[in-house]
Design a protein around this nucleic acid. Structure first.
Lengths: 233, 233
DNA sequence: ATCCTGAATATTGTATACAATGCGAATTAT
DNA sequence: ATAATTCGCATTGTATACAATATTCAGGAT
């Protein structure tokens, strides 16, 4: 698809790779707010407010909102405007089912195709550190996790698959920010990442597929539990 | 994702379900032209031409173009405008790989979840007729085929998966129109469809998955051959 | 003749103005 | 007092005007 900023590149405090095209920049800024929960599910978007805040006209802003809607982060009601897509456990499970379709197969393809550079990149992004008391640490954790999964799908050399996984990862991130009490366990996830890398390195297609499915399933259950605890249904 | 017209609903000559929102209508009209090859790969889109032809301003038109670009049917170069996404056999194979990831799993889920109504709907869309001399027959064939695959993914009850398969099916359709000499065999495809339905009906998850993968693979080889014959690489 | 240069033109990107629709508050009738 | 209705305002949808950038073609230098 059209190259879209995702995950790592999304923190607006990080100056890295700010798109020069205005709609793309606005897209990234607003996407960040939606994913981090700064713009909460169900909230209506007033175009003039945002356009004033960013000092642009509604024209490029609407282009950005349009893309976000197409990606499923916003919904558009005719003559009522955009609002942040509501979040439910059912929708989250749907999303996880999608990831369990895409990413295990991506892992299998990676096991067949990954180069030495790819595997090095995977290692570089596999470690997840999380220090409970630090508030920024949680965001770092999520971004690092996204980077690993993104590096993995990149090594499949299928850009369309890459785009779909990216989109799914982004939407997966939002519940993590909202259901704050997720029992994060960096140790376990890191271990699972390295097991997947090992399978890819030994070209063990079947094991890579199986491990990735389990990895996603584990996260799903943890996150759903914390969403329930946070009152979502 | 946001509900998007696809395949069956796309023929502008059929009055059925014309969206009242202008951008959505334009989206459908232009998409139809791209998919049918009326707008050929690589050609540049001049906004004023289209806006004049449809008697609308550039504003809603650009919104439609924006969506098409996000979906991968158009590409946008800054200050150079939109153009129809080029087509290559490599890209088509990438797309087929994506379908072979999504749809066999969709068939497996359908085997687990399809209701009696779902299966009836599958049967209603399974038959593909093709009378070689009739030019409109080919479009009908393609739409009918899309309807079957769409009905199948709908019975998974996963809207996100449905959206992705829909997008993949649409893009799959374009090469079919361009590489015209595709050795269409309605008989064989129809038979394969009914075999898949049988597997779903008997809840044979594994067979449904396998048959769908083979079904997509068969189409891939036929179409790639005819693309090569048409000079694409 | 060819290649470079540059002005004129065409096209996209953005801002603003206007039209259409939805929402709410005030007002009136019961 | 309450409910319904209408008027006014807020917001989105569309059209147009303007700015920024690219493309093209003419003209001249080598």
């Amino acid at each position: 698809m059209t190259d879209i900023p995702s995950l790592v590149e999304l923190d607006p405090t990080q100056v890295s790779s700010v798109p020069k095209a205005m709609p793309a920049r606005l897209y990234g800024l607003i996407k960040h707010r939606v994913l981090t929960g700064q713009l909460k599910p169900g909230v209506r978007i007033i175009e003039t407010e945002l356009s004033a805040e960013f000092s642009v006209s509604r024209t490029p802003l609407r282009e950005a909102l349009n893309r976000l809607a197409h990606e499923g982060l916003l919904v558009l009601n005719p003559y009522k405007g955009y609002s942040v897509t509501p979040l439910s456990i059912a929708h989250f499970r749907e999303l996880c089912e999608l990831r369990r379709i895409l990413e295990p197969e991506a892992a299998a393809l990676a096991a067949a195709r990954a180069t030495a550079e790819d595997i090095a990149s995977l290692r570089a992004h596999a470690v997840l550190t999380y220090t409970p008391k630090n508030p920024t640490s949680y965001g770092d954790y999520l971004r690092a996790n996204g980077s690993f999964h993104l590096a993995l799908v990149r090594s499949t050399r299928n850009r369309m698959l890459e785009g779909m996984v990216m989109s799914a990862l982004d939407r997966h991130q939002r519940p993590c920010y909202l259901g704050l009490d997720v029992g994060i366990d960096g140790e376990t996830s890191t271990q699972e990442h390295f097991q997947i890398i090992a399978a890819i390195e030994t070209r063990d297609v079947e094991t890579a597929r199986r491990l990735m499915a389990a990895h996603i399933g584990n996260a799903e259950e943890r996150i759903c539990a914390s969403l329930r605890a946070a009152g979502y249904e």
